[in-house]
């Protein structure tokens, strides 16, 4: 423990920073994609159209019972096969994350949509709005507002999950740290440093969520 080498961290900072940028980019795009697809899944489940609701429910429950690593493996295999040519690890990983997180976001959105009072929908109908107009102008804006803290929390979990792209050697913060750890023979320094970076980001995120909740409670 005595010979902790900060130099190895400092001299590799640019490489690690690139890794962190990839982690953040993947997180951001997966959150956006996950929320859009998740909202559609939630609307499908609540649509009242039996076959549509069943398919959406089956998808959500299937995804929620398998590990993310297996989902990543699935899409690394399926995406190039479906597209017909290799499209690069980043896009395969992104699609895997969007498809995976959508199942979790849809559960959050479903709860959010159900938290909007029925009277709001009826008022919308009474003023002559159509189904999509009611969702667009009445239900979803309120549902999103109620759900913001949980959506952010899920975003923090998603950021931690992106470290799993390690299994397909995509160079995020985790993979970058582990490459440096191996080539420089500095396992302790690099893994503790990675843990620290993840901790600072995720802990700040959860403090932010607590502030949001406190503000919404008043």
């Amino acid at each position: 423990m005595g010979d902790f080498d900060f130099g190895v961290i400092i001299s590799n900072l640019p490489f690690l920073w690139q890794g962190l940028q990839l982690s953040l980019l993947l997180t951001l795009l997966a959150i956006l994609g996950g929320i859009v697809l998740g909202t559609l899944l939630a609307l499908a489940r609540l649509s009242g159209i039996k076959p549509l609701a069943l398919v959406a429910a089956a998808y959500v429950n299937l995804i929620r019972s398998v590990p993310l690593i297996l989902v990543i493996f699935w899409f690394y295999f399926l995406v190039p096969l479906a597209v017909g040519r290799p499209i690069g690890g980043f896009y395969s990983a992104l699609i895997a994350f969007v498809m995976f997180e959508a199942a979790y976001y849809s559960e959050i959105m479903r709860a959010g949509i159900q938290s909007v009072k029925k009277g709001q929908v009826h008022a919308g109908q009474a003023t002559g709005l159509g189904y999509w107009q009611i969702q667009r102008y009445v239900v979803l804006p309120q549902a999103f507002r109620n759900m913001i803290p949980i959506l952010v929390t899920q975003g923090i979990i998603l950021f931690q999950d992106t470290s799993l792209v390690f299994v397909v050697s995509l160079r995020d913060l985790m993979t970058a740290s582990s490459i440096v750890a191996r080539t420089e023979g500095r396992l302790v320094e690099m893994y503790l440093f990675a843990a620290l970076v993840y901790f600072v980001i995720c802990f700040s995120g959860s403090l932010f969520v607590r502030r949001l909740q406190a503000r919404m409670a008043t």
Binding site: Q160, S163, L164, V188, Y191, A195, F199, C202
Partner: peptide, 23 residues
């Protein structure tokens, strides 16, 4: 709780496996 919840499980797994024996 804060420490173990805010570090990805993969990083924790690597720390236990690669770093703890060195420390």
């Amino acid at each position: 709780v804060e420490l173990f919840r805010n570090v990805p499980l993969l990083v924790q797994m690597f720390i236990w496996y690669f770093a703890v024996p060195e420390m």
